[in-house]
Design a protein around this nucleic acid. Structure first.
Lengths: 145, 145
DNA sequence: GAAAAAGTATGATAATTATCATATTTCGGA
DNA sequence: TCCGAAATATGATAATTATCATACTTTTTC
């Protein structure tokens, strides 16, 4: 479903969301220890996310990665977009370029309902909402169902 | 979602379903031409499917691949199972080994509803049903929705 | 019963993805 | 103002996946 890179990125951002803000930053090293993601690989992913303003970073001593309020407002989908690009999730399940509702591939109708729900969820739920859900662990429903 | 190999396998089996039976077989070469799947790669996939009795084959002149009635009764899921194994589709979206309803990963509740629907569909719809649906192109609904 | 047409088996190459390593830049504090 | 701690940039290696090639076996047909 997601690439390894996206899985790592999602995991890392979720941790950042629940444990950092402008005043409490996290170094790659600590995030790596905590999440079991290889340090150098994680660093690369965080750099990409930072470059695209999905997460924030400050260099130097006392520096590290963290999420601003703005970062938190971004949809979860944005993380995947930056790391994997849009094609992987959006494209036809059989990899056909010209598959759509009018000209569906054999599996289109079979797979699309689930896919649509998933995409809708990823695009509409913000990082903040996801993290909040985790902290409260309250009842929770998928938008669109 | 699916691996390239699974996509190819699905495409190929769908074609076999709509165009072959015990009396009308298809050679790898022709399937390859028709589906635009590299011949040698397709051959390897069909061999795997054949070895696991998902599709049928006869050697020699006038031979080729085809689907029996038994083959057609198999769930679509079986194709993916043979090619990709079960782990890829069933495992946690973040790749955690011990993720489940009691001990869910951060994305579990977010992704699981769509995933459950998809898996349910793949496991309950037979190859025959999928092919029949294509031929008739009639209204169609996903079981479980 | 030999020849050719098919699948079968096995392994080699290429491309992509995951992982690691190293040098560079920036910033805070002594 | 200079040292060290952090992110940043870039590129090298390893592992996996996709693709290709070749030799072997089976079976039909003449």
């Amino acid at each position: 479903m997601f690439s390894n890179s996206s899985k790592y990125a999602l995991t890392a951002v979720i941790h950042l969301a629940s444990q950092t803000d402008e005043a409490h930053k996290k170094m790659v090293k600590d995030l790596s220890l905590y999440t079991d993601i290889p340090k150098a690989y994680l660093a690369k992913l965080l750099q990409q996310l930072s470059k695209h303003q999905v997460i924030s970073a400050t260099k130097g001593p006392k520096g590290g990665y963290y999420l601003t309020e703005e970062n938190r407002k971004l949809p979860v989908y944005r993380i995947i977009e930056v790391i994997d690009g849009t094609h992987r999730l959006e494209s036809c399940v059989l990899g056909l370029e010209d598959c759509n509702a009018e000209n569906p591939c054999p599996l289109h109708d079979l797979v699309n309902p689930s896919k649509a729900i998933l995409l809708n969820t990823l695009k509409h739920m913000s990082i903040e909402e996801l993290a909040g859900k985790l902290n409260k662990n309250d009842g929770f429903s998928i938008p669109g169902t």
